[in-house]
Design a protein around this nucleic acid. Structure first.
Lengths: 227, 227
DNA sequence: ACCTGAACACCGTTCAAGT
DNA sequence: ACCTGAACACCGTTCAAGT
């Protein structure tokens, strides 16, 4: 009669369970709270137990990212460019939704099976758009890099991420002040054209990044060829 | 006779001194060790004292980045494109040299006076290259974003950054294994062209990123214009 | 104002021992 | 093998009190 019946026997620990619980804590309280100790507590054990499945925190985060990637739906048929933009934007938003995940992604360089599949799709869309297949991999890489970085920036500050501006994010506010207060002597171009940076929405901004990069990827030749 | 003469009187705390000491600890042991507690100890006080000058750790890091930016030398005269590439590469390397700094830069969005000056220079070089002045700010933004992200990736793992692969960085190794082991059925393009990704050096890779982005920035029109 | 010791509420990771 | 409590060596930040 050791396992009580009213409280079902504790399920066996497993990679999957740990990842699920981590995702859960993350959704509720942000990645910053999804620590080894906290997750361990949530699965009702000591922190040491997790180290049987993940060598360290970074590896746990990598697993979480690949899990999320697996849930991403690929855009339907249509012209290559909107599909490409959609795919990269989805990836960006996936990371931006869980602030801190993007930061992790930059450090750990995910390379799980689902990431490979995403890269394959990006490459195929770029090739459809006319890219040199030999360089499509670089193009995909660049798009993912920018998406990750943009997500890390966009990222909603977590509760008390040392960023509790009164009404607006003080991070944004600092930039606005810096641009508006630009000295026309020292920084004439910013003084003249800075408003353009503040004028459009983050979405417009992101779309411009995307378009510029796609245009560049399609236009540029391999670096090696020169000299 | 309260201040002993053999041990000079403790200098008064100041923003500058704290930044200098932080830079010092960073250079010797990496940003990860440059904690509030550690820096406080180095200036021989309790951690609480630093909070008189910096509201939190992120603010200290931002100050450190702007200080480093101030020490950056601007490239000499010459054609705009090499100068532009040099400038962005310098910024990337400045961040890559202190692993973790790049990660901080993404989160805190530096906007100090020295960053503004860098943006101004980038804008002016882009305009020299033929960019629409109204969009040069976006271009500079994109270049800095990529530089920061690339630096965060490149970044040499700090001593025991949970990344002590036997001989090579295990992070890199994981990608190599993933690409080499790509399934030709599931990911045919990677299987076919993946070697290109492994073939060139990080420097070539970076230069390609730069060229692609510059080409794109010069080619693309404002997003707003469509529809 | 500026400065501080002490405390609060946490971390990641490893060890030695258990099953 | 898998699992774990306890320990080690840290964190950021705030408080209440001092000068």
């Amino acid at each position: 009669m050791s396992p009580r019946r009213d409280r079902p026997a504790k399920p066996a620990l497993s990679r999957e369970w740990i990842i699920d619980v981590t995702l859960d804590v993350m959704a509720r309280e942000g990645l910053r709270k999804a620590t080894m100790r906290r997750v361990a507590q949530e699965v009702d054990t000591g922190p040491a137990s997790l180290y049987v499945y993940f060598r360290n925190t970074a590896e746990l985060h990598a697993a979480v990212i690949d899990e999320l990637l697996g849930r991403m739906t690929m855009p339907a048929d249509g012209p290559w460019q909107p599909r490409l933009e959609q795919l990269v934007t989805d990836y960006m938003q996936l990371l931006a939704r869980n602030p801190g995940l993007a930061r992790s992604a930059l450090v750990i360089r995910p390379s799980g099976p689902n990431l490979l599949l995403l890269v394959e799709r990006l490459m195929s869309l770029l090739v459809e758009g006319g890219a040199d297949p030999a360089r499509a991999g670089h193009g995909a890489d660049l798009l993912l890099l920018t998406a990750t970085a943009a997500a890390a920036e966009h990222a909603v500050p977590e509760d008390g991420d040392a960023d509790a501006g009164t009404d607006e994010s003080s991070k944004q506010a600092a930039i606005v002040v810096a641009i508006r207060g630009a000295d026309p002597e020292r920084t004439p171009l910013i003084a003249l054209h800075g408003e353009h940076l503040l004028a459009d929405t983050p979405e417009d901004h992101w779309r411009w990044y995307l378009r510029a990069q796609i245009a560049g990827i399609l236009a540029i030749a391999p670096v090696k060829d020169e000299r």
